[in-house]
Design a binder for these strands. Structure first.
Lengths: 145, 145
DNA sequence: ATACATGCAAACATTTTGCTTTGGC
DNA sequence: GCCAAAGCAAAATGTTTGCATGTAT
């Protein structure tokens, strides 16, 4: 894990404590997986997490992910797969994704998200609160092409 | 079912025949549900479809939906729910959605989709083919607010 | 010491497949 | 009549909950 990731981790653990979460082995393991991941992870990915050799129980991971999401520390994504995906929320950053419908590879898109300002407008017109969005592009990647 | 929907239905049945699908009772029922629906439907919605009193078998509906999606006649959506949603594709039209994370209500958004042109750019830069996208806004609706 | 978190196991929900029968062409 | 599609039933996959035990505070 890089120095940058380590800093993030301490920072996030602090936010977890603020939210009333205890610093358990499972919590640290889950956060490590998510902080170091290059793309969103499924519950099974996190629970398995071989490199961290933390085989945490799925039920435990499930409850942690649920709570972390509820506290706005991680984000839950659809990504069109049968299982849900999770990724860290880094303040001020938002990722959109490009996904191959053939092999399932997920790439983070490096672009200025074009819907940020729409969000404010939609919130105003619809009366919905706590608005956020999910934007994914699907297609066939060059390797599968 | 409105006249407009009826026209759509004939049109779509034609496209299905082109794709090699037989005009079965189940196919007609599935298409009727989807054409008349105001928002995307789950597999269970379509199979149950009470108003059409067509209790089709779920396996049948599943296979039909899969095939229809494969032929580009319907679209499969994530919508963050546990089950997948399906909606008709009306040529030249694309819908984005606004979803309440509390009660689950799904509203179609009436806006010029801001990512259409991005799509071409992404396709060019990434080499992905057959690109399409999914854009959803999530939040708490006024009733749940 | 206490309350919260874990792990195991079992219940659920949904999707997916196998196989026989039905019905469109 | 032939082959694709339907229907039934069962397997596979992923999520969620109950409950006894362990552990952070």
């Amino acid at each position: 894990m890089s120095l940058k990731a380590a800093m993030h981790l301490d920072d996030i653990l602090l936010r977890c404590r603020m939210a009333g979460l205890r610093r358990t082995r499972a919590l640290v393991a889950v956060l490590k997986s998510l902080v170091t991941a290059h793309s969103p992870l499924t519950l099974a990915d996190v629970a398995g997490s071989p490199e961290l050799k933390n085989g945490c129980d799925k039920a435990t991971v499930y409850r942690l992910l649920t709570r972390l999401e509820h506290h706005g520390i991680i984000r839950r994504l659809g990504l069109h797969d049968r299982s849900a995906y999770y990724s860290m929320i880094f303040p001020g950053r938002h990722d959109d994704y490009l996904i191959c419908t053939a092999c399932g590879v997920i790439e983070k898109l490096d672009l200025a998200c074009p819907v940020e300002k729409l969000e404010a407008q939609i919130s105003r017109e619809s009366g919905f609160r706590k608005l956020y969005h999910e934007l994914e592009f699907f297609g066939i990647c060059p390797s599968c092409g």
